[in-house]
Design a binder for these strands. Structure first.
Lengths: 203, 203
DNA sequence: ACGTTTTGCAAGCACTCACTTGCTATGGTC
DNA sequence: GACCATAGCAAGTGAGTGCTTGCAAAACGT
């Protein structure tokens, strides 16, 4: 006797279910921990179906990382700065939220780059473009006379972004990050950056 | 016929060789990738010997992480600030070097905390105390009138440390971190921090 | 009603994993 | 020479790994 309910609980098609579950298990357990049996079982799908869709574990994981990276992009800054303080704070909070939301995958991917370098470009694309975005924004702000600092805006951007990013992916995992609540920390980082840049904050 | 050379190539005793090799393989391949066979082979030791010394893979890895964390500590700041700029720069360069030297283990450990939380306290101890050290130093500097900034010094410390740390452990792995050479980046981060703190740099 | 695509199921393959057992050889100490 | 801690070796256990094969039953468009 078989209780056949596959056609009952199939919220999205098989392929997307497998991608979603693969990302989650990868985030929790890394490359080696993501076994095809676990993924198939968690997706409510036969293991053979997994191989029929993706061919191999490697292709499944690459597709999964690519899929999740393309689905949720980090926030962007406006083309021309108007309210430096407000805009940069909103951006910082967005980056932090983005990092927190994907903290587990990011931490895992960061470790797996050693053994699976092919993951790096697709996984880093988002944060790289966010950095370029911020540099462009600050450069424009300096052109507009909103920033007096004459040093490297790349360095200032890197400092702000890396601090926010690191806070986002380690919060709750590493002791010593919880001295300040998340949004207060981001606010402080943005404030300190604007002070360092001698910014004339308008709003 | 057996070519017995175990007593020839035994630079340190078996236990330390196993610890050393375990850390290296763990850094490269993570918890699951660190198989007892690989560790034993790389240490030039029989696999059975590994189990006789440490009982289990789990106990071996815990001992190994603890051992490496206690062996190489992050740099410290002087008790009372004298030359803010110089001292903070030296400290920052030291932190960055420390992070770079152990980048692989740190990235791996950061990912494994999810599955093996028992690693976290012993692995994070060093960086946590470095942070407290820096906060104490800056607080003393403010008491001495070297810093005008009246906001949170914890936030400023976190920002500086996390930026340096993140740069150290991702440099060469993540694209977009190589815009500036390492020491220039650290120098810029320290400069920006001192500007944000309205520091009167003496030397 | 038809053929095609997608899925499930059972079984198996060759391999690796952590870990154990039983026995032997070596080195230093009394 | 006896003793003992430390090491090696060969073999094996039971569980898991990625992946394949063969076949039957759905699901779907026409």
């Amino acid at each position: 006797m078989v209780y056949a309910l596959p056609y009952i609980c199939r919220p999205m098609d098989t392929k997307h279910a497998l991608l979603q579950v693969a990302v989650e298990i990868f985030a929790d357990s890394g490359w080696r921990g993501t076994t095809t049996r676990r993924v198939a079982e968690a997706a409510g799908v036969n293991e053979v179906t997994l191989f029929r869709h993706f061919g191999s574990k490697e292709m499944l994981l690459q597709a999964a990382i690519q899929w999740v990276a393309a689905r949720d992009l980090p926030p962007r800054l406006p083309e021309t700065p108007e309210h430096l303080g407000t805009e940069l704070l909103g951006w910082g909070l967005g980056i932090h939220m983005h990092a927190t939301r994907h903290a587990k995958v990011i931490r895992t991917a960061l470790a797996e780059f050693e053994e699976h370098p092919e993951l790096a470009p697709v996984a880093c694309e988002g944060s790289a473009s966010a950095g370029e975005d911020a540099v462009r924004y600050l450069t424009r702000a300096r052109e507009l006379g909103l920033i007096a600092y004459e040093g490297s805006l790349e360095a200032a951007t890197m400092m702000l972004m890396q601090a926010i990013f690191m806070d986002g992916i380690t919060r709750g995992v590493v002791s010593g990050c919880d001295l300040l609540p998340a949004d207060e920390a981001v606010r402080a980082f943005v404030d300190l950056t604007l002070r360092a840049l001698d910014a004339r904050v308008v709003a």
